[in-house]
């Protein structure tokens, strides 16, 4: 099936490696866990978002992946950039949910904190990216059992075809404390890859 929209670029963050359009652009195989990896990658790419260190794992993962894609767009923040953000994952914000839960479980060890609680929503990572790139666009966070190319395809086509967005930053950002994986891609009117379910799956599984 042909599509009127194209995939302009894509990014993977997994296994201590960040790749852009299929080529490795950063790896740090010594990092003991994602948070150490994320810190090193943040410094390497000189991202400049001081809140990064206060963010939870899911937001760090989403910000790293979207920075790779959006930096390449050389956005002019003085102009209107109508790039919608449509993310999905399996574990929602459960890693942070468990942290909040452990802060309220025991009356003798009771320390609920707004700095943690605010991250008990998966769409907070979209908020962080919107702030960093000044995107006043459409956004939504979906939960599926596994990567759902068909849903992302249908929903981003819908946003583009009814004119709610000029481009859509789409993807899967899964972080559950022990494992992590981000796959993000930019859907646009131009680009080298067709925007079809098969093409999305092909890029996802690279």
């Amino acid at each position: 099936m042909k599509s009127e929209f194209r995939i302009k670029s894509f990014c993977h963050v997994k296994n201590n490696t960040i790749s852009f359009n299929g080529s490795v652009i950063y790896e740090n195989l010594e990092s003991p866990d994602f948070l150490a990896f994320a810190k090193a990658a943040y410094r390497n790419f000189d991202i400049k978002y001081s809140k990064f260190f206060k963010m939870d794992g899911l937001s760090k993962l989403a910000l790293l992946a979207s920075d790779v894609i959006l930096k390449n767009e050389h956005l002019d923040s003085q102009k209107e950039n109508n790039i919608a953000i449509v993310f999905s994952n399996k574990s929602s914000s459960l890693d942070t949910d468990r942290k909040h839960q452990s802060s309220i479980e025991d009356a003798d060890n009771y320390y609920p904190s707004p700095a943690i609680f605010v991250y008990t929503l998966p769409n907070i990572c979209i908020g962080e990216i919107s702030i960093k790139y000044k995107l006043h666009s459409e956004n939504s966070f979906f939960i599926f059992d596994s990567f759902n190319a068909e849903h992302l395809l249908n929903y981003s086509n819908s946003l583009l075809s009814i004119g709610k967005a000029d481009e859509v930053l789409c993807g899967w950002v899964e972080y559950n404390g022990t494992t992590y994986e981000a796959f993000m891609y930019l859907v646009s009117k131009e680009g080298i890859t067709q925007h079809t379910k098969q093409d999305i799956i092909k890029l996802y599984t690279i």
Partner: peptide
């Protein structure tokens, strides 16, 4: 219908009601 982000703060609304 329509949706928009404030691109301002993660736990409070934009003072200007932008989004």
């Amino acid at each position: 219908e329509g949706a928009s982000n404030d691109a301002n703060h993660i736990s409070g609304p934009s003072r200007t009601g932008e989004g």
